[in-house]
Computed example of a mutant assay.
Amino acid sequence: MKSAFTEVQKFNQWWLRIILLGIVCLPVYGLFQQLILGEPFGSTPMSDLGLVLFFIGMLLMAGLFWYLELRTELDAAGIRVRLRPISSEVFTWDQIEHVEIITYGFVGYGLRFSRRYGTVYNTSGNKGLSLRLKSGSRYVIGTQDPEGITQVLRTLDKI
């Protein structure tokens, strides 16, 4: 079914990119110093293989943040949210008791669990689509386009 609303968010914070660049550059510098210059890196240096494995691990971690994506889709069938590659949820309209756009306090990034908001999917900002299910479960899906979601919810006659 074609979505009436689709939003794709990535982790694009400047400070996160600097941190990720730093954690990749550190082992690159260590590899250069230890393998090219022939000088041990640090006061208790790793083996060459250990340094290579550390570099690969940091590269994979940075790649994970590049790959992470929060996709939100709304249509006549319901709401789908996916935090690739970690989690995905599908909420049909008959499962949802209440839906609204809210402004919330900082809860962290990624997939979070909050006493106040329930399960939170967030990449940045403080606006989100709040869901209360008939089962009592609560969810917040962060958004950078609250007006777009509101417009679709009105079109679908959900608010």
Rank of each mutant, 00 (worst) to 15 (best):
Met1Phe: 08
Met1Ser: 12
Ala4Lys: 11
Phe5Trp: 01
Lys10Ser: 13
Lys10Thr: 13
Phe11Leu: 14
Phe11Ser: 02
Trp15Met: 07
Trp15Cys: 06
Leu16Ile: 12
Leu16Val: 11
Arg17Pro: 01
Arg17Gly: 13
Arg17Trp: 13
Ile18Cys: 10
Ile19Cys: 08
Gly22Pro: 00
Cys25Arg: 01
Leu26Ser: 09
Pro27Gly: 07
Tyr29Phe: 15
Tyr29Asn: 07
Leu31Asp: 05
Leu31Glu: 06
Leu37Lys: 14
Gly38Glu: 08
Glu39Ala: 11
Pro40Ile: 03
Pro40Met: 06
Phe41Leu: 00
Phe41Gly: 01
Phe41Asp: 02
Ser43His: 04
Thr44His: 14
Thr44Gly: 08
Pro45Ile: 10
Pro45Asp: 09
Ser47Ala: 09
Ser47Tyr: 05
Gly50Ala: 04
Leu51His: 03
Leu51Ser: 02
Leu53Thr: 11
Leu53Asp: 07
Phe54Pro: 01
Phe54Cys: 05
Phe55Pro: 00
Phe55His: 04
Phe55Thr: 05
Ile56Arg: 01
Met58Lys: 01
Met58Trp: 03
Leu59Ser: 14
Met61Cys: 14
Met61Val: 15
Ala62Ser: 14
Gly63Leu: 13
Leu64Phe: 15
Tyr67Gly: 00
Glu73Arg: 10
Leu74Asn: 04
Leu74Tyr: 07
Ala76Val: 12
Ala76Ile: 11
Gly78Leu: 07
Ile79His: 00
Ile79Arg: 00
Ile79Ser: 02
Ile79Met: 04
Arg80Asn: 10
Val81Asn: 06
Arg82Ser: 15
Arg82Gly: 10
Arg82Met: 12
Pro85Val: 06
Pro85Cys: 09
Ile86Ala: 14
Ile86Gly: 09
Ser87Ala: 15
Ser87Thr: 13
Ser87Arg: 12
Ser88Glu: 12
Glu89Arg: 09
Val90Glu: 13
Phe91Thr: 06
Phe91Arg: 03
Phe91Glu: 02
Thr92Lys: 13
Trp93Ala: 04
Gln95Arg: 12
Gln95Leu: 12
Glu97Ser: 13
His98Arg: 12
Val99Phe: 04
Val99Gln: 10
Ile102Leu: 08
Ile102Thr: 03
Ile102Cys: 03
Thr103Asn: 12
Thr103Arg: 12
Tyr104Ala: 06
Gly105Asp: 11
Gly105His: 12
Gly105Leu: 10
Val107Ala: 13
Val107Phe: 02
Tyr109Ile: 13
Tyr109Gln: 13
Gly110Ala: 11
Gly110Met: 07
Gly110Phe: 04
Arg112His: 03
Phe113Trp: 12
Ser114Leu: 02
Ser114His: 01
Arg115Met: 14
Arg115Cys: 03
Tyr117Thr: 05
Gly118Val: 05
Thr119Gly: 01
Tyr121Ala: 02
Tyr121Gly: 01
Asn122Asp: 13
Asn122Val: 06
Gly125Ile: 09
Gly125Leu: 08
Asn126Met: 09
Asn126Phe: 13
Gly128Val: 08
Ser130Leu: 08
Ser130Gln: 14
Leu133Pro: 03
Lys134Asp: 08
Ser135Glu: 07
Gly136Asp: 12
Gly136His: 11
Gly136Ile: 10
Arg138Ile: 02
Ile141Asn: 01
Gln144Ser: 15
Glu147Met: 10
Glu147Arg: 11
Gly148Glu: 04
Gln151Leu: 14
Gln151Trp: 04
Gln151Arg: 15
Val152Phe: 00
Leu153Met: 09
Arg154Ala: 11
Arg154Cys: 02
Thr155Ile: 05
Leu156Pro: 01
